[in-house]
């Protein structure tokens, strides 16, 4: 399917899932970013009750399984659901094995469910660049709730909080003593804590530890819910708990890092559209005639020196 942006966008507006899939591919590759941003600006605002809900926690805690359960739960409540399931991309080869779908039920006949796997480069805070743009597309396509499953780095993925309206942190029984929770740094950014696998022994103790930690004087009150995906316990309560959280939309985007990311994306897009303007630099750099610093410097001075790239 090689189509122009205008063709794909026109199909997206007609709610063609394949156009949505292609737009997400482009975003994941860092292509067409400026076009997509411009096109999105022309669409109406997203209703406030639509949420971006992130699920995080260490590997093996049951993120994919719980997200899979929540797809069904939201569907039963009449809400459509899109999932962005992030898995790590190898820093060495750029390859990725994306296996989150495996643990989510498949709904080939239900247009109210969309699941997309995303390879997340290392060093990107457990969620891909341009996640916000992907979320906007999914909401504009008509999905009520967008669930994000992080790669689950465990101690470093707190950055996802500013991308989501509600951050659900999963912990499981027998995952360490209360000092482990203290240092994890993850609980302090949680809007909601799920003690997952609550049917296992030790869940009581873990719940008590987490509650004791979160209810220290001066902390904001954070709901702690016991959930078991395998026994279908606590799923309705989790959905209600999520929807009871206030939306963070609008205040989460506007910081210096976001602006830098936007500028970078716009610049790379412009360069992609005019490969001929920087081909000589690429060749010189590949042949070793100029070093990394010099190549980067020449790239930065491109628009002024050639005059051939204009927005």
């Amino acid at each position: 399917m090689s189509m122009t942006f205008a063709e794909v966008w026109e199909r997206f507006l007609r709610r063609d899932r394949r156009a949505l899939a292609r737009l997400l591919t482009w975003i994941a590759r860092g292509e067409q970013i400026a076009n997509i941003q411009a096109a999105l600006r022309g669409l109406p605002a997203i209703p406030d009750q639509n949420r971006v809900i992130a699920f995080t926690g260490s590997g093996g805690v049951g993120k994919s399984t719980l997200v899979g359960k929540m797809i069904a739960n939201f569907r039963h409540a009449g809400e459509s659901v899109a999932v962005l399931a992030c898995d790590p991309e190898s820093p060495l080869t750029g390859g990725a094995l994306l296996g989150d779908r495996l643990r989510m039920p498949n709904y080939p006949d239900d247009d109210g469910v969309y699941v997309r796997s995303l390879a997340t480069p290392s060093g990107h805070e457990a969620v891909p660049d341009q996640l916000d743009l992907m979320v906007q597309l999914l909401h504009q396509f008509g999905f009520h709730q967008v669930l994000i499953e992080t790669v689950g780095a465990g101690q470093g993925d707190t950055a996802v909080r500013q991308r989501a309206d509600v951050l659900v942190v999963l912990v499981q029984p027998e995952a360490g003593d209360d000092v482990q929770w203290e240092k994890a740094g993850l609980l302090e950014v949680a809007d909601l804590v799920v003690v997952h696998k609550a049917d296992l022994p030790g869940a009581d103790r873990t719940e008590a530890q987490v509650k004791a930690l979160l209810n220290l004087p001066g902390c904001r009150p954070i709901p702690v819910l016991r959930v078991s995906s395998s026994k279908n316990i606590g799923l309705d309560e989790l959905r209600q708990g999520i929807l009871a959280q206030p939306s963070r939309r609008g205040i989460r985007l506007r910081n210096a890092n976001t602006l830098l990311r936007l500028a970078q994306a716009a610049w790379v897009d412009l360069l992609h559209a005019h490969p001929e303007t920087w081909k000589p630099i690429l060749e010189q750099w590949q042949s070793g005639r100029i070093n990394d610093d010099e190549a980067a410097r020449q790239m930065l001075s491109l628009d002024k020196s050639t005059g051939s790239i204009t927005s």
């Binding site: 190898s90 080869t93 990725a96 094995l97 994306l98 498949n106 796997s117």
Partner: peptide, 17 residues
């Protein structure tokens, strides 16, 4: 994956649909 591809593994016993 090791050759740099993004591979999505769907799991066993999938229907064609």
């Amino acid at each position: 994956r090791d050759a740099g591809f993004h591979v999505i593994y769907t799991g066993l016993w999938q229907t064609p649909e």
